[in-house]
């Protein structure tokens, strides 16, 4: 329980900040969902960066996180057999599982930032940073009690991660084309992107099944050998 408490502060901070931005948007009664959602996505990253700054101390941990980021960015180039069929989400989840929530968030959000340096930055970068960060953070939180050791839960989590990623990026698409949020439009975008969402789910599950055992073993070995992320 002590371990979880460390992260509750940042979760509460994010909830309060998001709530404030929603209240502000209602109070101002304007239609600037684009600006507000962008701000909200950015703000929700900040508490985790602060938590990372406080919780991760040693140089070994810092460098290992940098390597995991580089691996998941490079994963986008190494696996070029099928488009959208990328191990990024699986790697972020595995990092979160074995190295804890802080490392998970960092890997997810910086992978988005760095890989978009090659693919092109845009308003979507901020959303990707938040979503991938949360996926890694969630994996870390769930695995504090060893929940993701269960193979079924792990597969379920990676499938859910694919769905959530796709749904939130659809929210971005809806808001970006029109400042108002129209539910019908959102649903049609979801319908349009259903094949891609399916591909995300399948690729997440496949990579999870293939990569989790060998990589997990390696990360576990590194953890015990060098005494990091205890």
């Amino acid at each position: 329980m002590v371990v979880i408490k460390k992260y509750i502060k940042s979760l509460i901070a994010v909830a309060v900040l998001l709530g404030l931005s929603i209240i502000a948007s209602i109070y101002l009664q304007n239609e600037n969902y684009m600006l507000i959602s962008l701000l909200a996505a950015f703000i929700s990253c900040v508490p985790f960066f602060i938590s990372f700054e406080n919780n991760v101390q040693s140089s070994r941990e810092t460098v290992t996180i940098a390597v995991m980021i580089a691996l998941s960015v490079a994963g986008r180039f190494i696996f070029t057999l099928v488009p959208h069929f990328k191990p990024v989400t699986a790697l972020v989840i595995i990092t979160g599982m074995y190295f804890g929530p802080d490392a998970g968030f960092m890997t997810g959000s910086l992978t988005a930032l760095l890989s978009n340096m090659q693919h092109g930055q845009g308003p979507w970068t901020v959303f990707q940073m938040a979503v991938w960060g949360f996926i890694g953070f969630g994996a870390g939180i769930l695995n504090l009690k060893g929940l993701l050791k269960n193979r079924f839960v792990l597969i379920l989590y990676s499938a859910v991660a694919g769905v959530v990623y796709s749904l939130i990026m659809d929210i971005y698409t809806t808001i970006s084309t029109e400042s108002v949020f129209i539910v019908e439009k959102y649903l049609s975008y979801v319908l349009f992107s259903l094949p891609v969402m399916l591909e995300y789910i399948i690729s997440n599950i496949v990579f999870m099944l293939v990569l989790e055992k060998p990589i997990g073993k390696k990360l576990l070995r590194i953890k015990t050998k060098y005494g990091i992320f205890q």
């Binding site: 810092t62 290992t64 060998p214 590194i222």
Partner: peptide, 29 residues
């Protein structure tokens, strides 16, 4: 590709730990 990736992870992290120790001895912490 999976095999390559797996080897890549071991190589990268082992090398990185060495970098980290150098950083530490030069006062990173």
């Amino acid at each position: 590709i999976i095999n390559v990736f797996s080897a890549l992870i071991s190589l990268s992290i082992e090398n990185a730990i060495e970098t980290a120790d150098t950083m530490r001895s030069r006062g990173f912490e």
